[in-house]
């Protein structure tokens, strides 16, 4: 299954190779132009020279992970998060490190040896190390290079009522959606930008948009769901199972009002369940794409995911299908409009 393969591929910001190769192989048969830039964005275009609006679908390939920044004298690996990771989620996880995919664990002091008050404090990132079983610094340095990445090892699995658990759903769900949507037959130029380095500051998207020069862009994301026990209802950013979320504002973007209205109206017309993203924190590639050149109409459509930026996140397959149906319907609507010109 595509989403399973996508989430199990590894791709830290700036090192998206595995994901990019997988996507490239998937979409090659369906597109007319396939190019990469110096940052590693993968840009696919159907009907590049056709008349009509240049429509871009954008999803980022990178995921949060851990970068190796040192090896101590005993051969433990020191690391820092690349992208936003809550250090508290890291303790006692398994990882795979670097090009050689060396298995490792993030260890911690056994409970027996801790004082009671120690357990009330969160582990700081500086206190944690990755243990690959190396016997010495030299031993470790033979296997792992500075700047290599440790990835979570979570396997994709379908659980419960139509749910999925996996790592990196943010934003492999977007990638999976864009890949499927590229198969749609349209007559206007359709661009899919698989961007790099979103998690370290929306770095790839602006560069991709500058090249692709879209008139309109739909950013496909995995977004925070906070429908969990202990959270007040009015603090639920999105809820899993309530359909794809449409953004009205976040830290980086206020999407185009008419486009947002159109999407809500279309969802209602087609009977697709959608929700408003009810939180203005966080950012997406839309922030950079909207401000490219003289400005681009943008909207953000996101699949709600619980526990994003951790080793394991959970989403609903129904929300994923809803997002697919909504964007597909929107493309069909554009096609009708273009056809009647």
């Amino acid at each position: 299954m595509l989403l399973a393969r996508l989430t199990q591929a590894n791709g830290a910001p700036g090192q998206e190779g595995e994901v990019r190769d997988l996507i490239r192989a998937e979409i090659e048969p369906y597109v007319d132009v396939l190019k990469m830039d110096t940052l590693g964005n993968l840009i696919a275009i159907k009907n590049p020279d056709a008349p009509g609006p240049r429509v871009m679908l954008a999803a980022h390939m990178d995921e949060v992970a851990l970068m190796i920044v040192g090896v101590d004298s005993s051969g433990y690996l020191k690391f820092r998060p690349i992208g936003g990771v809550d250090p508290r989620v890291l303790v006692a996880k398994t990882v795979t490190v670097g090009a050689k995919k060396i298995p490792g664990v993030i260890g911690s002091k056994p409970i027996h040896l801790q004082r009671a008050e120690e357990r009330e404090k969160a582990f700081a990132i500086q206190e944690m190390v990755i243990d690959i079983g190396a016997k010495s610094k030299e031993d470790a340095e033979k296997l792992v290079k500075m700047g290599e990445i440790a990835y979570f090892t979570t396997e994709y699995e379908e659980i419960g009522q139509n749910k999925v658990k996996a790592k990196a759903l943010d934003d492999r769900v977007g990638c999976a959606l864009a890949i499927r949507l590229l198969k749609e037959e349209v007559s206007f130029p359709l661009i899919a930008a698989f961007t790099v380095q979103e998690e370290v500051g929306l770095r790839g998207a602006g560069v991709a948009a500058y090249q692709a020069e879209p008139d309109l862009a739909l950013i496909l994301e995995g977004t925070t769901a906070s429908d969990v026990p202990g959270t007040d209802k009015h603090k639920h950013a999105t809820a899993v199972g309530q359909g794809p979320a449409i953004t009205v504002m976040d830290r980086t973007v206020i999407p185009h009002p008419q486009l947002v209205q159109e999407l809500f109206a279309l969802a209602e017309e087609k009977g697709i369940k959608v929700q408003v993203r009810r939180n203005t924190a966080g950012g997406t590639d839309a922030g950079q794409i909207q401000l490219s050149r003289e400005g681009v109409k943008v909207a953000v459509i996101a699949v709600p995911c619980r526990y994003i930026h951790s080793p394991v996140s959970v989403m609903s397959k129904d929300d994923f299908e809803g997002a697919y149906e909504l964007v597909k319907s929107y493309l069909a609507r554009l096609e009708e409009r273009e056809g009647s010109r």
């Binding site: 910001p13 700036g14 830039d37 110096t38 940052l39 964005n41 970068m67 190796i68 920044v69 820092r80 998060p81 690349i82 992208g83 500075m146 700047g147 380095q197 370290v200 500051g201 770095r203 602006g206 560069v207 500058y210 090249q211």
Partner: peptide
């Protein structure tokens, strides 16, 4: 090695125009 790319001119140069 640094996971945080900001803070130097390299950050600005990388994303100008088409990168």
């Amino acid at each position: 090695p640094t996971p945080n790319p900001g803070g130097t001119d390299a950050y600005a140069i990388q994303v100008a125009r088409a990168g």
